[in-house]
Design a protein around this nucleic acid. Structure first.
Lengths: 200, 200
DNA sequence: CAACAATGGTGTCAACGTCAACTTCGGCCG
DNA sequence: CGGCCGAAGTTGACGTTGACACCATTGTTG
């Protein structure tokens, strides 16, 4: 008469399940709506069990942020094209589109990610963030090498490009303006940026 | 023998004091650290008194956000130059610098402001935000009228400029890169943007 | 002057994060 | 093989919080 699905004392994979559920919850209700006790209930575990894996609520949020950076990094890398196919401009547009798309679809998660990063100037979150954007930096460096992007101070064009992407993502996450879709907005924006970034 | 400073039953200006203290608290401890009860204690009133002025915690945060937009709007307007003195480029740099400076000095407040705006696509927060940036939009329109900014689709250059400013603010609020100071970073970035935004 | 709407106070409740103390499990070492 | 021990989960408690219902005090107005 004991149920076939009898829960054993040890969950076996609590940490992973907590992270997964937390990510989902952050995505569609925001980080502020995350409750350790609710998470524990959903995972079928006592209210204090999560503390075995995360020192406190903030530690869990940080871990979720790190995961977010890893996912974003993977998507950016995929968009950059592993075999570098297509022109430089096309690849840049693809990367930018991937970024903005991520920002729109996972707005709350992105907020959490940057909040966690800004809260601790060093630490694992910052490391994850740096690794995430390393690919984009490499792409820009390649553009400079090819002469498609103005050389000189390497930091300046990268900063502007990053800033525009970041801002575009922030704006679009609060509703894409007018009736235009994300792809054309990003394409137009990148074109406009490139015209300035190219050596004349 | 009753103290000279005897508190009267009615505070007299509770709403304003709560807003002021909340703004300070958000600025240097973040929105998540704001507690209605702590606020009430500091103001010397009972824990439920704030509810007479703000329906719930979020309503208070929204009000703080509106105030933030009004302050930011005033600073941007001041930077734009009431009598429009200086060249267009110089005014643009001044506005951008004012914006980024605000973002750096009041990072937590800016976060709150955009969070509140994104949470409610309509409502007073959005209205305040629109009014804040109306001045910047007017400046861009003027640039297009003067021919300093490429005409055509009016929305595109404005969006890119906005996005870059927004992103620059976001990035700089998490620590200005390298050892460069805000002013030069902003000036370089705007110059780079303009090169692309100008009609060739 | 009496009624009334604002404004503030008191008491209570459920939920939360965190901690300490206890229990169960599984692997490892003697 | 058996005992031990640390990892993982549980239970109970404490203090704090936001929200709500109900009561008290104002001062304004008819």
């Amino acid at each position: 008469m004991p149920q076939a699905v009898q829960r054993r004392y040890h969950h076996g994979n609590l940490r992973e399940e907590l992270l997964q559920r937390a990510e989902d919850l952050v995505r569609d209700r925001g980080a502020h709506a995350l409750s350790l006790r609710e998470l524990a209930r959903e995972a079928g575990v006592s209210h204090a069990a999560p503390s075995r894996h995360f020192a406190d609520r903030q530690a869990l949020l940080d871990a979720v942020a790190v995961r977010g950076f890893e996912r974003l990094g993977a998507e950016l890398e995929a968009a950059a094209g592993p075999e570098a196919d297509g022109s430089f401009d096309a690849r840049l547009v693809r990367v930018a589109t991937a970024y903005v798309r991520f920002a729109v679809e996972q707005a709350a998660l992105l907020d959490l990610m940057f909040a966690a990063k800004h809260r601790a100037p060093d630490g694992p979150v910052r490391t994850a963030s740096d690794r995430t954007f390393a690919g984009v930096l490499a792409l820009i460096a390649e553009g400079q090498a090819r002469g498609t992007i103005a050389p000189g101070d390497a930091a300046a064009p990268g900063l502007v490009l990053f800033a525009a992407l970041q801002g575009l993502a922030s704006i679009c996450s609060g509703g894409v303006p007018d009736g235009r879709d994300i792809d054309t907005v990003v394409r137009d924006a990148v074109a406009l940026l490139l015209t300035g970034l190219r050596p004349r």
